[in-house]
């Protein structure tokens, strides 16, 4: 499991290197008086990615990444909580323009708290709204930033 992930990460970096490298060759070659043009920095970054990606791949294939900070290696994931947090962010993004900023952000608050094991959703909803409202007012009424609202300037 660990090894597959590590190889995957190294492969991702190598792929990124290829994307930036190929992209660099498509950029105009015009260098003007500087002697280096638009493609110079992308090429440097692509080579840098290639180098670190290759080293990472070598580590992954020969016993895994080195020098871990203590306590990072053996962890067991709890996916249910993460699902709640994910749902909170994505739902609030989707509902932002329909239900307004305050409702969306309060929903996010309740979902994240639920993800971390809170069972008092009503209290969380009130806490969330109390937290969000002053910020909403600061943005919309004082700073004139247009945030989506449910029915009027106040909410």
């Amino acid at each position: 499991m660990q090894k597959n992930w590590q190889v995957g990460i190294a492969a991702f970096i190598l792929m990124l290197s290829a994307v930036f490298g190929v992209g660099a060759t498509q950029l105009p070659a015009d260098t003007g008086y500087a002697g280096i043009g638009s493609a110079f920095m992308p090429a440097v970054v692509a080579l840098f990615l290639l180098l670190v990606g290759a080293l990472l791949m070598w580590q992954a294939c020969t016993g895994g990444f080195r020098n871990f900070t203590d306590g990072v290696v053996d962890l067991v994931a709890d996916h249910r909580g993460a699902l709640w947090v994910t749902a909170g962010i994505l739902v609030s993004a989707a509902l932002m323009t329909k239900l307004g900023f305050v409702v969306a952000a309060t929903t996010l608050f309740v979902c994240v708290a639920r993800g971390f094991g809170s069972k008092t959703w009503l209290r969380d909803a009130i806490t969330g709204a109390v937290l969000v409202l002053p910020v909403f007012w600061l943005f919309t009424l004082v700073l004139d930033v247009n945030l989506p609202h449910l029915f009027n300037d106040w909410f």
Binding site: L141, V142, L143, D144, N152, D153, W154
Partner: peptide, 16 residues
């Protein structure tokens, strides 16, 4: 209430 705040804002000058 909203009007009051608007007036306060006007004093602060953030709305024309």
């Amino acid at each position: 209430m909203k009007l009051m705040l608007r007036q306060a804002m006007l004093a602060l000058g953030t709305t024309v």
